[in-house]
Simulated assay, not measured.
Amino acid sequence: MTAEHREVPGVPDVPGDEGCLRRVVSVPLAILYLIASFFLCTALSIRPSGGWDDEARAGIALSCVLTLLAGGAAAGIVALRPVCRAVGWWWAAPALLMAVAAAIRWATAQ
């Protein structure tokens, strides 16, 4: 078994399809990573002016939710069995890291 080949129970092995699938999946994943990173940067750059600034906190919450949605969609794509077999779980790491950062920002928005 080579480093490129990953066994996933219940998925038939089709030799040679990993490279094509990897190229096809990388496009939507890259787009979702860019979307998530944009909204994460937005959430991190918004600073409330004071305790009365509910609009800034709403903007932080919206940016964090959109980051979580984009990161969850990317992780969901990677979680599909044929995709996971072709690309591996480490492709979900950027999305999951951005989702964790967004959740922490959302929880600590003051």
Rank of each mutant, 00 (worst) to 15 (best):
E55C: 14
G88R: 07
S45V: 13
A30C: 14
A86F: 02
S37C: 05
L34P: 02
L32F: 13
F38L: 09
I31H: 08
W91P: 00
L32T: 03
S26K: 11
V24C: 11
A86K: 06
A75K: 00
L66P: 07
I77L: 12
G76D: 02
S26D: 14
V78M: 05
L34A: 15
A92L: 05
R23L: 11
V87S: 02
I77Q: 01
L66M: 13
L69K: 04
A61V: 08
V83A: 04
W52M: 09
L29I: 13
D53G: 12
F39S: 01
G72Y: 01
W89F: 12
C41L: 11
W90C: 09
R81I: 09
A30W: 11
A58W: 14
C41R: 07
L44C: 11
L66I: 15
F39Y: 09
G76E: 02
D54P: 03
I31V: 08
R85Y: 04
A36I: 02
I31R: 13
W89P: 05
F38Q: 05
L96E: 06
P48H: 11
L80P: 01
L66T: 06
W91F: 08
P82Q: 08
L32G: 08
R22H: 11
L44W: 06
G51R: 15
F38A: 07
I35W: 12
G51P: 09
P48W: 15
A99H: 05
G59H: 15
I31K: 14
A73D: 02
V78R: 02
I31C: 13
F38P: 04
R85T: 02
V65W: 08
W90H: 09
R57A: 09
L40N: 00
A92V: 03
G88T: 05
R22A: 10
R22I: 04
M98T: 07
V100K: 03
G76I: 00
G71P: 01
L69E: 03
L80F: 08
I35H: 12
V27Q: 14
V25P: 00
G50E: 10
L69H: 03
R81C: 14
L34V: 11
G88K: 04
F38T: 06
L32I: 10
G50S: 15
C84H: 08
I46G: 06
I46P: 10
F39K: 00
G50L: 12
